[in-house]
């Protein structure tokens, strides 16, 4: 039950993009087509879970025992950057098709605040390892849900008649606002 609540809360109630404002850059940047949105979601899911696992272990087994909590931000960002590089190299070798699909999105992810944000949130919420990984995974699911539905709507937006000044970014932001309003309907479920 507790685990189910983590999932529901992360995917719907506290959606990472639409109510916590993490990962907005990629949300607005690569959501012009459904195809690229799916690719980005895959890459984020992969890196988010791996980096949460790595940073959780780093925090619990190195930083906390040594009393170095103040190095959290610096060490986390380094671990994430190194991890993204390693994943990129490993994917290139092990699975070229997957690398082809995710490759261009991977370098972008280092500066995706969703990854660092979820890593820090996991520590702040005092989860155990399993809960933390589940927390990261469901946040990635929520990212995918928001990203893919948003890109679907943006594809339709291409054919709409929009006042000249609202074209491009402004109308996309308003669309995101409406989507976020729809997600507010989930507020209160499970708390």
């Amino acid at each position: 039950m507790e685990y189910l609540l983590i999932v529901i809360s992360a995917v719907f109630v506290n959606n990472i993009v639409l109510s916590q404002f993490l990962g907005i850059c990629s949300f607005l940047g690569v959501s012009k087509k459904v195809e690229t949105a799916v690719g980005m979601t895959g890459a984020v899911m992969f890196v988010l879970v791996l980096s949460t696992l790595a940073t959780y272990l780093l925090m619990k087994s190195v930083l906390e025992p040594l009393g170095l909590e103040y190095l959290r931000t610096i060490s986390f960002i380094l671990v994430i950057a190194a991890l993204v590089q390693m994943v990129e190299i490993a994917l290139k070798k092990v699975s070229p098709p997957l690398y082809q699909a995710l490759g261009i999105y991977l370098p972008l992810i280092t500066t995706n605040c969703a990854v660092l944000g979820v890593a820090i949130l996991t520590i702040q919420k005092d989860f155990n390892l399993l809960q933390g990984v589940l927390f990261a995974f469901s946040h990635a699911l929520g990212f995918g849900l928001a990203m893919i539905s948003f890109s679907g709507m943006r594809e339709h937006l291409e054919y709409a008649e929009i006042p000249a000044r609202m074209k491009g970014v402004p109308i996309s932001l308003i669309l995101a606002g409406l989507l976020s309003m729809a997600f507010m309907g989930f507020a209160g479920i499970g708390a």
């Binding site: 404002f21 000044r165 609202m166 970014v169 402004p170 932001l173 606002g177 309003m181 507010m184």
Partner: peptide, 20 residues
């Protein structure tokens, strides 16, 4: 609504349109 998440998107959207 403007102090809640949707308001952030909407207000910024109109601000950018105004600046454009």
């Amino acid at each position: 609504i403007f102090v809640m998440p949707p308001g952030a998107f909407i207000a910024l959207g109109y601000l950018i349109a105004g600046i454009n």
